[in-house]
Design a protein around this nucleic acid. Sequence first.
DNA 1: TACTGACTTGAATCGTAAC
DNA 2: GGTTACGATTCAAGTCAGT
Lengths: 375, 375
Amino acid sequence: MSSLKTDRIYQGNCVEVLDSLPAASVDVIFADPPYNLQLGGELLRPNNSRVDGVDDDWDRFQGFADYDDFTKGWLTACRRVLKDTGTLWVIGSYHNIFRVGTVLQDLGFWVLNDVVWRKTNPMPNFRGTRFTNAHETLLWCSTGPEARYTFNYEAMKALNDGLQMRSDWSLPLCTGPERLKDEAGRKLHPTQKPESLLHRVILASSNPGDVVLDPFLGSGTSAAVAKRLCRRWIGIEQDPDYVAAARARIQAVRSVDDPALCATPRKRAEPRIPFGTVVERGLLAPGTVLSDASGRWSARVRADGTLISADHRGSIHQVGAAVQGAPACNGWTFWHMRVEGDQTLVPIDLLRQRLRAEMTGGGTGESEAAGEALQ
Amino acid sequence: MSSLKTDRIYQGNCVEVLDSLPAASVDVIFADPPYNLQLGGELLRPNNSRVDGVDDDWDRFQGFADYDDFTKGWLTACRRVLKDTGTLWVIGSYHNIFRVGTVLQDLGFWVLNDVVWRKTNPMPNFRGTRFTNAHETLLWCSTGPEARYTFNYEAMKALNDGLQMRSDWSLPLCTGPERLKDEAGRKLHPTQKPESLLHRVILASSNPGDVVLDPFLGSGTSAAVAKRLCRRWIGIEQDPDYVAAARARIQAVRSVDDPALCATPRKRAEPRIPFGTVVERGLLAPGTVLSDASGRWSARVRADGTLISADHRGSIHQVGAAVQGAPACNGWTFWHMRVEGDQTLVPIDLLRQRLRAEMTGGGTGESEAAGEALQ
DNA sequence: TACTGACTTGAATCGTAAC
DNA sequence: GGTTACGATTCAAGTCAGT
C-alpha cells in the first residue's frame, strides 16, 4: 500500500485520482458536486438585467439516470479512500440532493444529519413563481450504522454560545473580498462556498492533523479552511484554471500557529450572537490575543470560539471570570482587542454589534425576524 | 367516470382508496407518509429485524427497496387522482425524504421547492452525538416541468410582512392544547403536525373550493385546516382509532364564514384593460404627451391607443421598451401624465385602476378617489 | 472622513392569455 | 397547437462615485 501524500492538489478526473490513492486513508471528505441544474432560457431581473446562471459544461447531464451513474461512481471511489471511522459531507440543492442521498444510502453510508445551510442573503425569486430558494442541504454520513466517527460536540456547542448546534445553519453567501475574481474582475468560480460554512464543517468532524479531501475542489475553499485549521488536505480538480487559482489561494493561507487552538462554552431581548460566530465569520482570527481594558490579563482566541489563558480555558465569560477570580463576567465588554495601526483597545462587543447590525439591517425574510423587530 | 365525494374520511389502505377515486379530480395532495424502517409488518419482512439482522448490507438494501416500492405505490396512485394543474406536498426527514424525492422525480413529478420546516422548539440530541435534528423537509411538486400550478405569491408575501416567502419556515412543534390526547392524557398520534404548517401549505397552493387530499390523514390536521380555510377535503386513514379522532376533530372546526377571507387576489388574475379603452373612454385625449417618471423620454397618445415617440411607434409597452432599449417594459407603470393644475407626474396605471373599479361595481373607493382627483 | 444613493450581484429548474 | 404580445416581477450586501 502506497503512502498518502497530502497538502496538494491533484489535477484530473476525480474517480481516477481517487482510485490512485491508498484505501482507508482519509478522515473527512467534503464534496460539492455539480448540481444538475436544468435551467431554461435566460432569466431577467425586474430591472431587466440578466441573471448569470450556471451553464458550465461540467453541469450538463443527459438525465437523472446519467447523473445517478456519475454519483455512484465518485461516491464509490470516495468510500474506498475513506477510513471506516471517517465521515463524508455532500452539499447540494433539490435538483440533485435526493439523488445523492439515495445513492449514498444504497452504498451503505449512514446519514448522521441532513444540515440546512440557510442563506441570509439569497437571490430572490424574480418572477414570483415559487418560494425564494433560500437554502442548500448538506448530508453528513458515516461509513455505516455501527461506525465510530468524529463529532466535536463541545466545539459545536461552544460555537453556538453554549447551546447544542442545530441542523440548520444561518450563514451569508460568499461575496465581497472573499469571492475570488479573475483578471477582468468577474467571479472566478460560479459556486464558490463561504469559508464560514467550511469552518463549521471541518471543526465539527475532524481534528488537527486529520486528512480532509475534496473531490471537486473548485476554488479551493475546503482546502484553504482545512489548512488554516491545521488539518492536512487533498484537493482534486479537473479544470486547470481552477487548479491554478486554488493553489495560489491556499498558498496564501497561514495555518493557526498553535494547532491546539483548532481543536476542542446569553442575552434575551436582542438577538443572541455566539462569540463563535465572530470567529467563524472571520471578524477575529483564531490565535488573536485579547486582553482586558487595563492590559493586566490576556487570553488567546480558539477556533471554536472559546478562549485560553495561562491558567484557564472556556467561553469568553468563563475565562473572564476565572482570571479575575470573580463569580461572573460579561466577556463581551471585559475582553478587548487592539485596533490595527492603533494602540487603543476596544471591546470585542463591537464585533457583536456589527453582526447584529447585519442581522437587523433589512430583516431576514422570515416572520420570526419581523417578530423580533417589534420587540 | 364517478363524481368525487369530498369532505369525508375514507378508512382503508391508501392505494386502494385512491384507486377507487376518479382520476384528475384533486387540486392539492398533502402527504405525511411513514418515515421508513418503522413501518408496519407489510413493509418489512418479519424475519428482517433491522437491529438483529443477519447481514447488515442485505438487510439495509431490503429495507430501502421495500420502502421505495411502498413509496412508488402510493405516489403513483396519487398522480392518477391529481389534476394536471395540481401539486403534491410530501413531508419527511433524512430517513426517508431522499427516497421519496428520487421516486417523485422518477415518476415525472417536477420539484418546485424543497421547503425546510425549521422547528423553533426541537427535541435536543440527548447523547451529544450529532447536531440537534431541528428541521424536517417538505417537497412541493407539480405534475411536470411544463405543468401550470397554483401558487398564491401575494398571499405568501403578505404572510411574511411584505417580503417574499422563503423556502425555510420557522414554526413551533405541535404542543399544548392543539395536541390531541387520548382518554389517558397521552398524545393520540406520534407525529401530529402543527396547524400553522398546514395553514401555510394550503394557503400557498390552493384556492377556496379546491380539493385537498391527505392519503395518510393521521390525526386530521390537513383536513381540519382545509375545512377552516374553505377548501374541500378528503382524508384517507387506515387506523380506525385515528379515523374516529380525526372525524371528531374536523367536525368541531368552523369554516371561515367568508371564503374571500381565505384567498388573496392575484394581480395576474385581474381583468386585462387595453390601453385603447382608456383613450376610447375619454380618460386620455389623443395628442396627450406622456413621459417617463424622470421626464427623459416622451411620446404622444394616438387615437387608436398606440403611442408615437420621436423614433418609435406601437403599444405603450413596445414604445416604453424601445425608448429605453430594454427587452421589455410595463407601459402602465413606465408612462406618466401630468396632473392638471399640478406639476407632479402620475403613472397612467391610475387610469386603468379607475376602469377596473368601474367594472367591479363598488370598487375600493381608494382607486375611485384617485381617479377623480385626476380630473 | 462619514454618509447617501445608485448600481451590481448571487447554484435559478422563474408566465400566460388571447388570437 | 403554435405564435404574438401583454405586462408582472427582487432581497441582502457589497461597491463606488459624489457630497
